[in-house]
Computed example of a mutant assay.
Amino acid sequence: MSASSAIAVRDPWALVPSLGNLDAYISAVNRLPLLTAEEESSAARRLREHGDLEAAGRMVLSHLRLVVSISRQYVGYGLPQGDLIQEGNVGLMKAVKRFDPDQGVRLVSYAMHWIKAEIHEYILKNWRMVKVATTKAQRKLFFNLRSMKHQLKAGQDDAATHRNTLTEAEVAHVARELNVKREEVLEMETRMSGGDVALEPQTDDDGESFAPIAYLADDSHEPTRVIEARSRDALAGDGIQRALEVLDPRSRRIVEERWLKVNDDTSGGMTLHELAAEYGVSAERIRQIEVAAMKKMKKALTETA
């Protein structure tokens, strides 16, 4: 057994940095030792037959680099890579728990499904444009359409390459390959490629101009709306402050960093991994504290209302 493997056996978490940013984490996991087929099979049997958590830790650690690699495929959806990695790690742990070494496959092949499934679920819950992707076929379409469009445009002339929309033949090809309706391909392409529409007129001349905002009813002075607005403003101001006061200092700071803080670069507060590194715990533990804190705040807000 190599020296690095011996270190992993004594303390499987020793090589994971307790402090540092995402780049430090990625650098560290890429240096973690890989398991041989025999070591992986032995660890899986110890976990399954004896509940050996050290064996589970070794399997998780040796595949953290796989989660990082898979997470890079989804950074184009506008979500923090740190959070994508965290969700992928949850999938990896689920895979390790369910892995059966007697099936004749390596954990890396088995874990890919679980890692991608957790990341997909996270994206679908957090990306506003994907609310229509509710069926299995629609999800498959959403996660494959961009790559298939790129493949179809490859090798074409410049005019076709710069044309963003699919031709009728290309739509039919995508629908056939993904086993979905042609109309679903067109709808998903529109949702993914369409830009935002300005509500107000974008013109500098004095002529009459119409935009979507001209067709929206103004109900801001309707009595019920006024009461709702006042209640909402109260909860957003004093209510939030009172709700934060019921939390312990650590829980309060986690909520403030995750939900209430905006940095100068508008990138938001700290990620789960950054907070985990600061407090010397796992990112999953930070998320558990965050969930518990949110429940306390919700209860406090309900009592305030």
Score class of each variant (00 low, 15 high):
Glu184Leu: 06
Ala169Gln: 01
Thr167Ala: 04
Lys261Asn: 08
Pro223Phe: 00
Ser193Pro: 00
Asn164Trp: 04
Ser267Met: 03
Ser251Ile: 03
Asn179Ser: 13
Arg163Asp: 02
Val185Arg: 11
Met188Pro: 00
Met270Lys: 03
Leu260Ser: 07
Gly195Trp: 02
Gly194Gln: 07
Pro212Asn: 02
Ala172Trp: 04
Arg182Gln: 10
Gly269Thr: 09
Val246Asp: 01
Arg191Ala: 00
Phe210Asp: 11
Thr266Asp: 12
Leu260Cys: 10
Arg253Lys: 02
Ala217Phe: 03
Phe210Thr: 05
Val255Lys: 02
Thr203Val: 15
Gly195Ser: 12
Ala175Met: 00
Ile254Ser: 05
Pro249Ser: 03
Leu199Ala: 08
Ser251Glu: 01
Lys261Val: 11
Gln202Ser: 07
Val180Trp: 02
Gly194Trp: 08
Trp259Leu: 15
Ala229Gln: 11
Thr190Cys: 06
Pro201Thr: 09
Glu256Asp: 09
Val197Gly: 09
Glu200Met: 14
Gln241Pro: 05
Leu199Gln: 14
Leu178Ile: 00
Val171Cys: 02
Val262Gly: 03
Leu235Met: 15
Leu166Glu: 00
Ile227Asp: 15
Gly207Ser: 06
Pro201Tyr: 08
Arg191Lys: 13
Lys261Leu: 13
Gly268Glu: 02
Ile254Glu: 01
Arg225Ile: 10
Trp259Cys: 15
Gly195Gln: 07
Leu260Arg: 04
Glu222Pro: 03
Ala229Lys: 09
Thr224His: 11
Ile240Thr: 08
Ile240Tyr: 08
Arg230Met: 12
Ser220Pro: 05
Arg258Cys: 10
Glu245Thr: 07
Ser231Ile: 15
Thr203Lys: 12
Thr190Trp: 07
Arg242Tyr: 08
Trp259Pro: 03
Gly194Asp: 05
Leu166Asp: 02
Asp233Tyr: 05
Asp206Ala: 15
Gly194Thr: 04
Val171Asn: 06
Ser193Tyr: 04
Pro249His: 02
Pro249Leu: 01
Asp264Ala: 12
Glu208Thr: 13
Leu235Val: 15
Asn164Glu: 14
Gly195Lys: 10
Leu199His: 06
Glu208Pro: 03
Gly194Lys: 00
Leu199Asp: 08
Thr203Pro: 08
Pro201Ala: 06
Ser209Tyr: 02
Ile213Lys: 06
